[in-house]
């Protein structure tokens, strides 16, 4: 059954990717502007030179054939060539991916840790001061767009206090973490409210369950009851929302990386859109879609581990 379930997930993953790739690829034909002009840097090209470039990048083929060439290329790890860097897309993205992955992971960790702790405290003190304070602060933070957060953090912690660098991504593991601290906080601020509120809601619901009452009546301490019967049972929705965060975070990197001058995938996306570097844009968008679908598939597959009833439901009820 589990194999069937994983198989089904993979099938829908492939379908999603095919649809997304087609959408991404053909949308470029709707965008005004001719990549050839960019390739030739605004020079007045001779028709021969222009034809050579068109030929080199396969821009003269009909759209659907270009699409299949692109898809076919992907199967041998060839995502095309970047128009602006004149290098393989895989190389261009691959160079920048580690720092972006680090940024996303760091801010995801901050979001989950802060959100879950804040949401749990809010749930346990529901209706009291701590609850209202946490909700107010989280909601206010949620209204801060990442670019504003970035500017404020740079102004306070980099320029005024000089605790953190304002620019670049650093070398080596610890230095990278040091450099990414402010950017990941800037991204995390806006998203914490989501996890915080879901945690609070889910915990409040579980707190009112009768089995929590029963566990208390058996003489278990409050912390034990909360850990074993409330928190554990509240995990499902937290996982689900957490999985959906990943795509949002990847997109948010484009703003934060630009603000902090980090050479990552996000800033690359902004740059490539500006320069009509379609192969790179397409590859990045596909990367975002893939990571979103894959994280959600993982979350779905984890569900039966959290909730044994889900495992039974899948066996057929």
């Amino acid at each position: 059954m589990t194999i069937r379930r994983v198989g089904g997930k993979l099938g829908s993953l492939v379908l999603t990717l095919v649809l997304a790739s087609a959408l991404v690829f053909f949308s470029r034909f709707l965008v005004p502007g001719d990549p050839v002009n960019f390739l030739l840097r605004g020079r007045k090209p001779s028709p021969e030179a222009k034809a050579a470039v068109v030929e080199q990048f396969g821009l003269d083929l009909p759209p659907w054939e270009q699409y299949f060439r692109w898809i076919g290329g992907m199967f041998h790890g060839d995502f095309g060539r970047s128009l602006q860097f004149r290098d393989a897309v895989t190389t261009v993205i691959g160079d920048r991916l580690p720092v972006t992955a680090g940024l996303v992971i760091m801010s995801a960790v901050i979001i989950v840790v802060v959100g879950v702790i804040a949401g749990t405290i809010a749930a346990l003190y529901r209706g009291r001061f701590a609850d209202r304070a946490i909700l107010t602060v989280l909601t206010a933070f949620g209204a801060i767009p990442p670019f504003v957060g970035s500017i404020v953090l740079i102004a306070v912690f980099a320029v005024q206090l000089r605790w953190f660098p304002a620019f670049g991504s650093g070398d080596g593991f610890l230095d990278t973490i040091y450099h990414l601290t402010l950017p990941s906080i800037a991204m995390a601020i806006a998203f914490m409210v989501l996890i915080g509120k879901v945690t609070r809601m889910s915990m409040v619901e579980q707190l009112s369950r009768e089995h929590v009452h029963v566990a208390t009546s058996r003489g278990l301490g409050r912390l034990t009851v909360i850990r074993r019967h409330v928190f554990r049972n509240a995990l499902g929705p937290i996982f689900t929302v957490g999985g959906m965060l990943i795509a949002g975070l990847l997109v948010a990197t484009s703003i934060v990386e630009s603000a902090f001058g980090i050479a990552g995938v996000g800033s690359l996306l902004v740059q490539s859109v500006n320069r009509l570097d379609f192969p790179v844009v397409q590859a990045i968008v596909l990367l975002v879609v893939t990571s979103f679908v894959v994280t959600n598939a993982i979350v779905d597959l984890l569900e039966p581990i959290i909730d044994p009833r889900a495992a039974a439901g899948e066996a057929g009820r």
Binding site: E210, H211, H213, V214, H229, R232, N233, I306, D307, R309
Partner: peptide, 8 residues
Amino acid sequence: RAGINPMR
């Protein structure tokens, strides 16, 4: 049904 934690 409600009084015993369904996940344990």
